[in-house]
Computed example of a mutant assay.
Amino acid sequence: MCHDTGPAVMQAVNTKGAADKRGVRVKRLLAVILAAAVLYSGWWIYAAQDMRRGLEDWFEDQRNSSWQATFSDLSVRGFPNRTDATVTDPLLLSPDGTIGWRAPFLQILGLSYKHGHVIVVPSDTQTLTTPDGEIGLSSDGLRASVIFEDQTVLRSNLEAMVLNLTGPERAVAMAGVSAALEKTDTAPGAYRAAVSVESIAVSPSNVTTNMGPDSLASLRAEMDLVFDTPLRIDGLTDAPPPRDITLQRSEITYGSVTFKLTGSASFDMQGRATGEVNIAAENWRDAIEAARNRGDLPPALSEGLIDLLSMLSSLSGARDALDVTLGLDRGTVLIGPIPIGTLPPLQWR
């Protein structure tokens, strides 16, 4: 007896052919995925090596500029989508040894696919070297971000929940710290800067400062800065001070008293200021007296401030009100044509 098996055979052949085609497509897809993974891994390795090489070159550039610039270890991690560098025991010290910084570690965090935007996270403890001695810095939540293009700084932000500075004689405790810097188009080296500190307290270095509503002050300032050239990531230690500063707004509040400063100044090669600044305040005498009674101001400084502000207030025609414009001529402070003091030169190093 003979049976017709043709349709069954054809169906089997077709099924096998379809399965083979699916198998080929799967193999091709796996090959594409594997190739993409290999290419991306290669890109991450390149980005990680580029970050490492950039940091090593930066430290080398500082050494070529006669700075002491060292670290004990440098590692880059974060695969697959991050390039996070950790610099262990970084140290920077100026050629004359008067300006420096060191910390247990510094992290520079970035995205492997987004060059030119990094987040900088230092350790909670750092040490600053200044001409007046070392300053210990402790913080909570301190971090900064920098956006740059072709090594030119375009924007930068800094924030900290707590930032404490302890020097040889005084300690400063700050809370709610934020700062921002952004390049503007008004001049090649022009930037707009803003600083805000919600609470500031000052005490002798051997006394623990208790932050609270009666803290020494709060600070808010907005200003325009003009440098000779734009700020560069690879040349911050060699950057000169700004040649022009315009205070759009600057307020220091102590209790119920707010000191307001506005004005502008240009700086010569020696860092001496020429321009004018306006100072305004109400009930300033109570604020200085309260600060002196709490020990926030050294007696010699508070006496000098009272004498100076009393003289300035007399020009406003009121004992406790202050609204006066001071002239600046190469560092000399003037009331009209009369010199009343000098400002220290503006220097970064």
Rank of each mutant, 00 (worst) to 15 (best):
G341V: 02
V172F: 15
A180Q: 15
Y40E: 05
R243G: 11
C2R: 14
V121I: 11
I279P: 01
T127C: 00
M1R: 05
T83P: 07
T166N: 14
P122G: 01
G110N: 06
R330E: 08
I252Y: 09
W101Y: 04
L261C: 06
G141I: 00
Q49P: 00
L312D: 03
K21T: 09
V226P: 03
L91R: 15
L181W: 01
T127I: 10
P80C: 11
V32T: 05
I147A: 15
L30K: 09
P339W: 14
V121N: 12
G97Y: 02
F148R: 07
S215D: 02
R243H: 13
K260S: 06
V120K: 09
S65D: 14
A287D: 04
I245N: 00
H3T: 10
F105T: 08
L74V: 01
S203T: 08
R349A: 15
T70V: 04
L312I: 06
A103Q: 03
L301N: 13
Q248M: 10
P90N: 05
R170A: 10
L142S: 04
A193I: 02
A12C: 09
F71I: 00
P240Q: 02
A318I: 02
K27I: 08
L326Y: 00
Y191S: 11
A37G: 12
A201H: 15
L106E: 09
A103S: 06
L247G: 07
V120N: 06
I338N: 11
V120G: 07
G133Q: 09
Y46I: 12
T129I: 05
Q151Y: 12
G235P: 04
P168T: 11
S66N: 13
S138V: 13
T262N: 13
T186G: 09
P168S: 14
A36V: 05
A290F: 03
L328T: 00
D238W: 00
A18H: 13
N278F: 01
T88E: 06
Q347K: 15
A287Q: 01
R53E: 08
G341C: 00
P204Y: 11
V277F: 05
M311P: 07
M223L: 08
F79K: 11
G54P: 04
D185I: 09
T184C: 02
R53A: 13
N278P: 01
A18D: 12
A300L: 13
I99R: 15
